[in-house]
Every structure is written in C-alpha cells, then in structure tokens.
Design a protein around this nucleic acid. Structure first.
Lengths: 187, 187
DNA sequence: TGCATAAACTAATGATATTAGTTATTATAA
DNA sequence: TTATAATAACTAATATCATTAGTTTATGCA
C-alpha cells in the first residue's frame, strides 16, 4: 500500500502532535502511527528524528515570524511593540509545541532557521527606529524588549503565572513602562 | 560490592552531568555509570527517571533561591533588582543544566518546588515595596520584572544572543529603564 | 506496455527505562 | 559476639525507542 506522504505532511503531523500532547511526544512511532504507516517508512521523507525536529523548528519559526510581521502592520512606536508582544504571547498560547520546537532546536541550527530568527530581530530593530535611540544603545534596548516578550511567553508556556486572564494587560503595561523609561533617557 | 550511595549523591551526579554535557544526557545509564553501579541499582535511591528529574529540579530551585537572596542583601530600590538580575543570569551561566532542570520540571510539580518558586516570587515582591507601587498594579510590575530576568537568562542559555560579553550591561540598562518608567507612572 | 523511481514494507540491532526476583553487605539488637 | 533485619547491590527479562539494511510494491512516464 502507498499512503502518498509528502515531507510537509510529516512536519504538519509532528506539529499537530507537539501542540496537542507536547513536544516530548514527537516520536517517529507517534508520527508514523498518526500517518498510518510504519516507523521505518518515515526515513523516506526525513533523515531521522533530529532532522524532523529541525525541520519542525524551521516551520515554527516561519509561522512566528509571519504572525509578528502581521501584528506590526499599521502601528508605530510604543503601540507597535505592544501589538507584536501580544501576538508573540498569543502564538505561544495557540502553539505551545511549536514554540517549544523553536526553543529546543539543536546545534548547529539550520541556516534557514537562523535567517528567520534574524528576520524577527530585524522587525524589532525597525520598530525601534522612530524612538530615536542612539545606535550604540539600541542593541541593549532591543535585547531588553526581546527578553521581556520571550520571558512572558516562556513563563506562561511553562505554567509560571498563576492567572493568565490579564496576562496581556501585564505585558502591555510592562512594555509601556519600559518604552517610557527608555524614551525619557534619550529625549 | 557496595558503593554506599546516598540519594543526595545521585542528585549531585545528575546535576554534574546536566551542567557538563546537558540536561538531555541525564539518563539512568549515565548516572549509574558515573557512580560505578548498574542502572537498576539506582531504583534503590530514586523511583525512576521522572522522579530523579523532579528531585534535581527541586535541588536546582533551592540553589537559585539562595543565590538570589544572597545577591539582594544590602541593596534596595533599582539597584537591588539589578543585583538580583545579575545573580540570576550568573546562575544560569554557571549551571545551565540546573536551570534547564527547573524549567523542564514536569507536572504535577512537587510541593517543595512550588514553595521554592514562591520564595523567589516573594523576594521580588519585597524588593518592590519601597517603590510605592499601588498593590493592584504591583502584580503587573512584578510579572514584568520576572519575565525580563527570566527572558535574559533563558535567551542566553539557548544561545539567543550574539555576544554575551556585555549582556550584564544590557540587563542592568533594561532594568533601569523599566524601573524608571514604572516610578514615573506612580509618582 | 515496460521500466525507473518513489515509497511502502519486514527483519534485525542497539540503547533505553523499567520490573521482578536474588544475593550480598551492613547495621542493629539479643 | 552472633543472629537477624534492613539496605543496596546484582542478574535476567521485557517493552519502547531510533535506526539500518534489504525487499517489495505501486506509480508515473517514455
């Protein structure tokens, strides 16, 4: 019998498993089982479990990049960061397994993955332009923003917050305080 | 032969492996090998791999709590947060495997672990008292700080920053901006 | 229709965690 | 000091993985 599996379907299946029952549960046995084929058949589509994980990480990072770019459209200044930050946290809520795949990508990271990460970093850099931060300070400022947003998303993903109802509010307040303090220093 | 293994030695061995070659490498085979005993003998000291991981997470969170408390001594206000933040990042640098153990602790988390996490949260809360933030806003403010510090540590641990030389500077600047913006809002 | 390729399969290997049952060592109490 | 109970090692066996090798079957194209 022939199931007609495409590489993308394998990734999609792994993504589904990751978001549904956790990244740890991405095993070749689980993926093959959900696809209705035997484990060794997967080797026709991916080069093994590490390869599958890396391909999933790439897929996930592209999704995240796209959603962050979408969220930034039509906003500038402080509000742009708030929108992107919310989109970041929302992505992690919707796709905890994919976010884990991004964070657990093993070295050496695929080149395309590095590129996508860079694209996300560039988004932050561009959004920071209008604030008029001196360029030698901008690297620190952006590190702070990335850390903040990642910190919120990551802590929530690992169940680090008690009540997640008003977490978006915490995030937008935090970004507000940070950008205000930042602006005050350089204006 | 009898090796005279104490439970603490098993945890210490797992900690050593985690920091040296990575959390993923904590296997019963590795731990037993380093202790000079056979894998099944470990079941006399821990109840299996998940139990060992949880005990290691508890041990790690206690270490982190102690180091953060130490760092806070003798400081108040903005500077206290900077010191604690630096200690946090320093801990993750020194003990990447232990930090991973904390973050990968599986549900349900041991009660003692929850207590230790709460102690760390309480440290942040106490340090924030002098800033005079209204109590209904303090929860947001503390979430922001935790996220920031965790974000820095976590991003560095996963190799998310290019150059880590001046990372401490980025962290202290970020905390400064944040606390300044926060203070401005409520004074 | 025939052939090359893609994609499934079976079988086998080695690493892992885990359980059960056994033996040896140590500590303690008579 | 010796007998006994406990502790902590062991061997043997099983189940689940990932992985490799070799084989078969289905598909698409000349």
């Amino acid at each position: 019998m022939r199931a007609g599996i495409k590489p993308e379907i394998v990734i999609a299946t792994a993504a589904d498993i990751a978001d549904r029952i956790g990244w740890e549960q991405i095993t070749l046995a689980n993926v093959a089982g959900q696809l209705g084929i035997k484990t060794p058949s997967l080797y026709n589509h991916v080069e093994g479990l590490p390869d599958l994980r890396q391909k999933l990480a790439l897929y996930a990072s592209e999704q995240l990049r796209d959603q962050l770019h979408d969220a930034a459209i039509g906003h500038t200044g402080k509000q742009a960061f708030i929108e992107v930050g919310k989109a970041y946290v929302a992505f992690v809520r919707q796709h905890p397994g994919l976010y884990e795949a991004i964070n657990r990508v093993s070295e050496p990271k695929p080149q395309m993955f590095e590129q996508t990460s860079e694209a996300i970093l560039n988004l932050f850099i561009r959004l920071m332009q209008p604030l008029g931060i001196p360029s030698e300070e901008a690297v620190h400022a952006i590190r702070g923003l990335r850390s903040m947003v990642h910190g919120f998303a990551s802590l929530e993903a690992m169940g680090g917050f008690q009540m997640q109802e008003d977490l978006m509010e915490s995030l937008s307040k935090t970004i507000t305080y940070y950008i205000d303090g930042l602006s005050k220093h350089f204006n």
